[in-house]
Design a protein around this nucleic acid. Structure first.
Lengths: 110, 110
DNA sequence: TCTTATATATATCAAATATCGTTTTTGACA
DNA sequence: TGTCAAAAACGATATTTGATATATATAAGA
């Protein structure tokens, strides 16, 4: 059985994907990124969308920035964020398909 | 503007999904769960599939067990694991669509 | 210009959690 | 009893999180 496409290649990919998963594995960051899927948003708007206290949100946005997932632009008083990572966008898309806002509780687990 | 479908409902869903993301946000766990998508596997087989040292893998499997993502069954010397959470399966499916083993590096981020 | 208000960012601290390597146990057999 | 396979127990270090306080940038007034 020829280990599919080399173990270490899989491991590298897994690490990459795992990092991205970790970035999104916090409710505030997840909600923020979901909101950004709809388009550019100010911090204030994200605050409203996530319900997170401002310093918390700011810190999480800083993290997403560092990780290259979002980019910021300042316009006078406000700072506007937007998604800047296609991988993250694809992941969110996929998650929405799988768990979309309307997902019925199928209880099909076994 | 009627906050879409109640903020707190979104927050609850986000927390749920974020927990799942966190469970899978580690290379070893991610690889193990991916392997289990193909069917039941012994710890030994998972060890080979993930390349992780036995105690590490065991620890991660224990965590997935606690979180209800996998179930174990002992057959004589070996222990066989299988996926037991449809949500996790759906998520992996989604990830595979988004990042499938053959994903080209599209570099479409901007 | 000096002040004040608003929006956002950064800093700090303690508690909780995660991760990793190593060692020790346990369970099921031969 | 000896031996595998797998789990659990340790111990060290690092990261995350939430709360709270403080700082910066820009704009608007007096």
């Amino acid at each position: 059985m020829p280990r599919p496409a080399s173990l270490s290649a899989l491991q590298r990919r897994a690490e990459e994907v795992a990092l991205l998963l970790k970035s999104l594995s916090h409710p505030v960051r997840l909600l923020a990124v979901c909101e950004l899927m709809k388009g550019e948003r100010s911090v204030g708007a994200l605050e409203a969308a996530t319900g997170a206290p401002q310093p918390t949100l700011s810190r999480d946005l800083a993290r997403l920035r560092r990780e290259g997932i979002v980019k910021a632009r300042r316009q006078s008083k406000s700072v506007y964020y937007r998604l800047s990572d296609a991988r993250a966008a694809r992941m969110i898309d996929a998650l929405c398909v799988a768990f979309g806002p309307e997902t019925r509780k199928k209880r099909s687990a076994r």
